[in-house]
Nucleic acid binder design. Structure first.
Lengths: 155, 155
DNA sequence: AAGTAGAAGGTCAGGAAAGGTCAATAATGA
DNA sequence: TCATTATTGACCTTTCCTGACCTTCTACTT
């Protein structure tokens, strides 16, 4: 519990809690400086503690003026719904099931009609048939991605 | 946003916003002077931020009395933007260009932030890299598909 | 008209300033 | 013990910034 990774995790979660906009931005080397550790230790913490499964999204930019940006995902009621959805999807997702899921999300008013149409047009479009190895698997992976995006607190 | 390039970008966009003609004219060396940097830094900003995908056109003239002219490209409001977009997309569409295009659509208020995030998460997602033969070609096709969906009157 | 000096902007390579990755080692705990 | 988790450091990629050198244009001189 007293270990570095846990302390950094706690620190980040505390300031993330207070962030009204649902995200925080900071610099890796600076944070490493605060905890007197190597910068890659920050990556370790992000990789192990701030995963999508745990309700976080991490974006970054390199180069001069680079940054880390940690986004909170909704963990409330809707968030739990997302979790259920993820399990529903499983490893494969057929076209029909995708359409069903999107319709359901529209009914639940979690996505708009337009958003649903967008997703359907991409994931059920036949502009791609035959291009892939394993379209159902891919569709499932993309759908999880979509759900994650929809639950971002910064949008 | 502490870096120079971002500040110059912001500055240019701000005065472009206020320009009644839809374009601004200025001198490279002068602008460099304002930001106390070398003139080529201006080119860097123009090359990376004021691209056609993002809705800008840069013209210039050398020699005595030379200038830079940045033009804001308008997307015809009444669904005419479809043609322009299709042209811009072409046969292949890189991740960066996609992001530029989506940002522009958001700016023009043709799509919402959430919709843009959705599209980006699907089409730039790295969950897929390496799965396909020719991801850039596919991305272009999908993007055109999306445009069609967006122009549907029933949404 | 031709030539030329000076005043723009353009290009490109290299260095600096971020963050990313990976493998080796250390610490922890069942 | 020994398997998992944590920590470090060496090396990589991306983005930004600068400076040296190049090209184009105008104006002036002869």
């Amino acid at each position: 519990m007293g270990n570095l990774a846990d302390r950094i995790e706690e620190y980040l979660k505390r300031i993330l809690e207070q962030a009204s906009e649902g995200y925080i931005m900071l610099q890796r080397s600076e944070l490493a400086g605060v905890f007197s550790c190597v910068p890659s230790q920050i990556n370790y913490v992000l990789d192990t503690r701030f995963t999508v499964e745990r309700g976080y999204l991490v974006e970054s930019r390199r180069g001069g003026g680079g940054y880390l940006r940690i986004v909170r995902l909704e963990l409330g009621l809707e968030g739990q719904y997302q979790q259920v959805m993820r399990q529903l999807i499983g490893e494969q997702l057929s076209r029909d099931r995708l359409n069903g899921l999107m319709d359901r999300l529209v009914n639940e008013e979690l996505v708009t009609l337009r958003e649903a149409a967008l997703v359907k047009s991409i994931l059920s479009g036949d502009a791609l048939s035959g291009e892939f190895r394993d379209w159902d698997v891919l569709r499932a992976r993309l759908m999880k991605n979509i759900l994650t995006t929809l639950s971002r607190e910064d949008l």
